[in-house]
């Protein structure tokens, strides 16, 4: 068994007297692929922010790669976050600026290079390596804003990988994409997980198709962990019906699980 890469204990976050996240105990091993699911407002994004130290819990401790991050000052926290590759939701970045795709990917090197230094030729070689690996050679000099949603997502993945991350955090990476791009991005993330020691944390509110090869699925509900285990254990009809408050059918084919609402199935 791999060692624990991330340990959360007795985490509580309250807003206006209301608890929005309470995690008694969550350990994630190095190299795991963890899928965090839940309804809107279940606390998924809050959990990601706690893990990377952007949100300070009212109580509890977060240990990231053997370092207790609660007690660090903002500058030290920034240094810890240098090894987190973060792919945010599309509302979190400005896609209207005329940055080229290569410039956006190269932003990943900014995290790991010290202040007051520029990017070297070796840095750009690293950027080009990941752009080629993700099939972005033709888009390299195009502006990010002129790319399709799926291509933009690939550039953001390249940006995160250029950072040489220990952990990849993806916040609903396929939420605005069509079916074809959803599959392509999911495939890319699965392939990236083969990188030695790379821990992947993927947040999603979609349960209509559950990706294969996920080591672990965590179902958040009303700020707490309702179920934690492999997809078979977590995604049972009873649990999903309870959380999403609707009747569902689960179909399984070629190792993938597909969840449909009965109402839609009848239509």
């Amino acid at each position: 068994m791999s060692e624990d890469f991330l340990k959360l204990s007795d985490i509580h976050i309250t807003r206006a007297g209301k608890t929005i996240l309470h995690i008694d105990h969550l350990h994630i091993q190095s190299g795991q692929f963890v899928n965090i699911i839940g309804t809107n407002g279940a606390g998924k994004t809050t959990l990601l922010k706690v893990i990377c130290g952007l949100l300070k819990p009212s109580a509890g401790s977060v240990v990231f790669n053997h370092i207790l991050i609660n007690s660090l000052n903002p500058w030290q926290k920034s240094n810890i976050r240098k090894r987190i590759g973060y792919i945010p939701q599309s509302t979190e970045y400005n896609s209207e600026l005329p940055f080229t795709a290569r410039e956006v990917a190269a932003m990943g090197r900014t995290s790991i290079k010290p202040l007051l230094t520029g990017l070297s030729r070796a840095d750009y070689e690293h950027v080009d390596f990941w752009m080629e690996k993700l099939g972005l050679n033709d888009q390299k000099n195009q502006t990010f804003r002129s790319l399709s949603g799926g291509e933009q997502q690939k550039v953001l993945i390249a940006r995160a990988m250029v950072q040489e991350p220990l952990m990849l955090m993806l916040d609903e990476p396929t939420s605005n994409l069509d079916f074809n791009w959803k599959l392509r991005i999911s495939r890319i993330v699965r392939e990236l997980h083969q990188q030695p020691g790379l821990t992947v944390l993927m947040v999603s509110h979609e349960i209509s198709s559950i990706p294969v090869n996920v080591d672990r699925t965590i179902l958040l509900h009303k700020g707490g962990i309702l179920a934690d285990g492999n997809s078979e254990q977590v995604l049972t009809s009873a649990v999903i019906q309870d959380v999403y408050e609707c009747e569902i059918n689960i179909f399984e084919t070629e190792g993938n699980k597909y969840v449909f609402s009965r109402e839609l199935s009848r239509q």
């Binding site: 990377c52 952007l54 500058w75 926290k77 920034s78 240094n79 810890i80 976050r81 240098k82 090894r83 987190i84 590759g85 973060y86 945010p88 979190e92 970045y93 400005n94 600026l97 940055f99 410039e103 956006v104 932003m107 990943g108 090197r109 900014t110 995290s111 290079k113 202040l115 007051l116 520029g118 990017l119 940006r159 995160a160 950072q163 955090m169």
Partner: peptide, 23 residues
């Protein structure tokens, strides 16, 4: 000249900048 790379990330996304350890 000296803060060009950080300012580019700030322009693109302050959320990415803070989540990935850019000062």
């Amino acid at each position: 000249t000296f803060f060009n790379k950080e300012m580019k990330v700030l322009l693109f996304s302050r959320s990415i900048a803070s989540a990935t350890g850019v000062h």
